[in-house]
Every structure is written in structure tokens, then in C-alpha cells.
């Protein structure tokens, strides 16, 4: 087996282990054997539900499976988005927050909570404002029909700052007894709201956005050469970049709408994946997606099992992500895996 094959086999095993852990660990511990019995039942092998106690299959199928699916898909999507943006913007410090989509989505969600609207409206508003923020960024960055990477990043920073201010304003007006805590906890991120219905809403959106990104992985290599070289190689740079940004926007907006702002995954996981398989996006993108899913599942399992209350996900991803990122950077320093 090639080194690459071995890495992917390892990532697949890691993901399976993370999935099993996500289904069995928690405040209501379930034996991995029971999880296995249930899982084989889904594909028609063995007794399935009949082989385990009723609370066990109810917890697994109604609570943990939806949560595992959403967590895994969001983790994979954010890591994939981060890897794409780092390639397209040729910048190692870029993650899905940079194009303004997270801040826009956060404001949409906060506004919905402030106005006392229901969960479905919150989801739609967060998604809509996320898209709106990106449209704003694109509008600002275009000059004479062209838009440079620098203008895109600058516009992203400006729009993100604007929506961050609006979030602060909304928080300031929130009722400290009811809506304020709701806003704060939503912003910190969690998969606690996972239900089978939500999973069925999220998975098609995330898949529809992730599949084109994975398919255009060779084009991302070309885009990472910079506009002029890519154009010189015959690429329609702007069209390709907008397509990639549109897909990333869909993934990020859906993720924030569902589970608040979960930072660091889109920044750290691509770096880790690059250290494993190298910079070629043809292998980097699938590796980042697999690793992102495993990472998110493990972090979420930690978040809901370490203490009696759930630790907000965004807090945990930052506490783990920041030092890991620092280590990665220090290790790769002599290696110059980024020639900036």
C-alpha cells in the first residue's frame, strides 16, 4: 500500500472509531457492543433493535444518530471549506469566517432570537443573512467587473466587522432574563438541537455543496497558483472562484444556522491534513473532510460527556484548536510548507 493509501485507511478507521464513540459515550453510556448490534440491524444483519433494551435504541436512533450525522457532516463541511478557501485565497490564515458568511449568519440568528421567532425561522434567517453577507462582500470587492483576492479578503473583513457590530447591538437590546442567554449560548455553538428532521434538512444541503467542491479539486490546484498564472493556463478564474465560494457559503451558512459559530475547525484541520498528505488538493480535500468529521465528532462527544452540563462547542474547538494550531505552525516552521 502506498503512503497515501495508508493515510486514508487510517483516516477511515479514525472516523469509524469517532462514530462509534459518538454513539456509545455520553451521560447515558451505551456499550459499543449494543451500538454494533443496532448498526448491523440497520443494514439487515442480526436482531437490531430487538437485541438491545428499549431506552438504548431510542437514545441511539432518535438522539445520537442525528447528532452524529449533523456533527460529522458539519465538521467535514467546515474543514473542506477551510481547505478550499486557503487554496483559493493562497493564504494559510483563511477560514470560512473570512468571507463574512459566519458573521452574517450569526446576525440573522441573533435577530430571530431577539424577535422571539421559532427555531425554523431562526434557521432560515441565519442562512439568508449568511448568503446576504457574501453577496455584500462580492459587491464591495468588484471594481470594473474584476475582483482581486486582496479586495475580497478586505471586503470580507469589513462586512464581518459590520455584522459583528450588529450582533453586539442586538445583544445589547436583548432581555437579560430570556433572550440574552439564548443568544449567547446559540452563538457559542452546539449540536444539542439535533433531531432526525434537522439531520434530513442539513445533510442534503451540505452534500449538495460539498460534492461540487470535491469534484473540482484539480481546479483548486490551478486557482492556488494565483489569478494570472491560472488564466495563463486557460482557466476562467472568476467563474471557477465564484462557484467555489458559492458552495463554501452554502456549507458555512447551513452550519452556522444549525449549530452557531464553531470556529477553528476550518482553520486547523486543513493544516493538519496538509501535514499528512501534502498540498495537492486532489488528495488534500478528501483527507480534510474525513479528518474534519472525526475531529468534530470527538470534540462534540467531549462537549456533552465531560461535565453534567454541555460545554459550548465553539469554546471547546478553540481551546483544543488554538494550541494544536500553534504546535503545527512551530513544527512546520523549519519545513516551510508555506512559502509566504
Amino acid at each position: 500500500m502506498t503512503r497515501q493509501g495508508a493515510v486514508f485507511a487510517g483516516l477511515a478507521v479514525l472516523l469509524l472509531a469517532a462514530m462509534t464513540t459518538a454513539l456509545s459515550a455520553g451521560r447515558y453510556a451505551i456499550a459499543p457492543g449494543d451500538v454494533l448490534t443496532l448498526a448491523s440491524g440497520w443494514i439487515g444483519i442480526g436482531p437490531g433493535r430487538a437485541g438491545v433494551a428499549e431506552p438504548v435504541w431510542r437514545v441511539v436512533e432518535l438522539v445520537r444518530v442525528p447528532r452524529m450525522l449533523i456533527g460529522g457532516f458539519v465538521g467535514a463541511g467546515l474543514a473542506l471549506s477551510g481547505a478550499i478557501l486557503q487554496g483559493v485565497f493562497r493564504n494559510p490564515l483563511v477560514d470560512p469566517h473570512v468571507i463574512g458568511v459566519s458573521s452574517g449568519a450569526a446576525f440573522g440568528g441573533v435577530l430571530a432570537i431577539l424577535l422571539g421567532l421559532g427555531a425554523a425561522v431562526l434557521w432560515s434567517m441565519a442562512f439568508a443573512f449568511g448568503l446576504f453577507a457574501v453577496v455584500l462582500v462580492i459587491g464591495l470587492s468588484r471594481r470594473a467587473g474584476q475582483s482581486s483576492i486582496l479586495m475580497l479578503v478586505l471586503s470580507g473583513v469589513v462586512v464581518a466587522a459590520l455584522f459583528a457590530a450588529l450582533v453586539s447591538l442586538a445583544t445589547y437590546f436583548a432581555d437579560p432574563n430570556s433572550t440574552l442567554p439564548a443568544i449567547v449560548f446559540w452563538l457559542m455553538g452546539s449540536f444539542a438541537s439535533a433531531t432526525p428532521e434537522r439531520a434530513w434538512r442539513m445533510i442534503p444541503i451540505l452534500t449538495a455543496c460539498a460534492v461540487p467542491l470535491l469534484l473540482m479539486r484539480f481546479r483548486i490546484n490551478i486557482l492556488s497558483l494565483g489569478d494570472e498564472e491560472a488564466r495563463g493556463l486557460g482557466l476562467r478564474v472568476e467563474r471557477t472562484r465564484w462557484l467555489a465560494l458559492a458552495c463554501v457559503t452554502g456549507i458555512t451558512a447551513a452550519s452556522v444556522a444549525n449549530s452557531g459559530i464553531v470556529g477553528w475547525v476550518g482553520l486547523v484541520v486543513p493544516h493538519f491534513a496538509r501535514a499528512l498528505v501534502g498540498p495537492d488538493h486532489r488528495v488534500l480535500l478528501p483527507a480534510a473532510a474525513l479528518l474534519g468529521a472525526s475531529y468534530m465528532l470527538l470534540v462534540d462527544t467531549l462537549a456533552r460527556s465531560v461535565i453534567a452540563a454541555e460545554i459550548p462547542l465553539g469554546v471547546l474547538t478553540a481551546i483544543i484548536g488554538a494550541p494544536v494550531f500553534m504546535l503545527l505552525l512551530r513544527r512546520s516552521h523549519g519545513d516551510e510548507s508555506w512559502r509566504t
Partner: peptide, 11 residues
């Protein structure tokens, strides 16, 4: 071009 400008260390 005059030089290879990508920050990624491709083979």
C-alpha cells in the same frame, strides 16, 4: 511567468 509564485510546495 518569471517565477513560480504559489505558496504551496507542490511536487
Amino acid at each position: 511567468p518569471q517565477a513560480f509564485a504559489s505558496p504551496f510546495p507542490y511536487s
